[in-house]
């Protein structure tokens, strides 16, 4: 009896030991995903009720506080620029030649009618800083072994209180993710693919965002080029650059 108990205990410990330290997993994911600065070009494919649309943009970010986005296409959006400094947001539209300051709650709106909000795009805080994590199992996705992690926010202002991530065991890329409300209600699903080697990182070039509460096929976010830790001149993150 006693023996069985000890055996179970050891077995349990061994199984546990098979799982990596969740924080180290998250740190490795962060190492892939976040950087001091970043310049990227991306395309959003928005699957609407009536048609699909593509929006391409070029983004510059520095840390979590500064972000600058310029829209390249379609024609209507071309030249529209957005600057986010901390909680403040400015938009410049070439057609009106106006720089408009929007209050922070506009960040909660959907980006160009997609399933992403500006928050989703711009919140680039490190996962390890925002969430406590626990590895709860392992699975296989598209032939790749993944750790399943449950994340629970440790800060107050996380947009999503809980997340469930399926992280590639070798490359430390989130291949699948579910975002939950505080109550545990599933809100969004993300599926990433086209993982590529960029510089010394693994990076998913395509992610499908799906707001599960809404009908529809969600939004594909495709990164066509990305540059990490590039030097971005300070003036990029100034209001003057909006008008250029």
């Amino acid at each position: 009896m006693k023996f069985t108990f000890i055996l179970l205990l050891i077995l349990g410990f061994l199984l546990q030991a098979n799982y990596p330290d969740p924080i180290s997993v998250l740190t490795k994911v962060d190492a892939n995903m976040t950087s001091g600065t970043r310049i990227s070009e991306s395309t959003m494919v928005i699957h609407g009720k009536r048609n699909d649309r593509e929006v391409t943009s070029k983004g510059y970010t520095q840390g979590n506080e500064k972000a600058f986005t310029e829209y390249l296409s379609p024609e209507r959006e071309k030249g529209t620029k957005m600057l986010k400094l901390e909680n403040r947001l400015w938009i410049y539209s070439p057609s009106t030649d106006r720089t408009i300051q929007l209050s922070g709650h506009m960040l909660r709106q959907s980006v160009m009618g997609s399933d992403l909000s500006y928050e989703d795009v711009m919140d680039t805080r490190k996962l390890a800083e925002v969430y406590n994590a626990k590895v709860t199992g392992e699975e296989t996705i598209d032939g790749r072994k993944v750790w399943v992690l449950n994340l629970v926010a440790k800060v107050e202002d996380a947009t999503y209180d809980k997340r469930k991530q399926w992280i590639d065991q070798e490359r430390f890329v989130v291949l699948k993710e579910e975002l939950f409300a505080k109550s545990g209600q599933l809100l969004k699903k993300l599926v990433s693919s086209d993982v590529a080697r960029i510089e010394n990182r693994w990076y998913p070039k395509k992610t499908n965002y799906k707001d599960v509460l809404k009908d529809g096929k969600g939004t594909d976010f495709i990164v066509s080029s990305i540059q990490f830790d590039a030097v971005i001149p300070d003036y990029v993150f100034s209001k003057a650059s909006l008008k250029e």
Partner: peptide, 14 residues
């Protein structure tokens, strides 16, 4: 200046 979204959900300024 009007700021809103177009029929397609794109940003619209006028």
């Amino acid at each position: 200046t009007y700021i809103g979204s177009t029929m397609n959900g794109e940003m619209s300024f006028k």
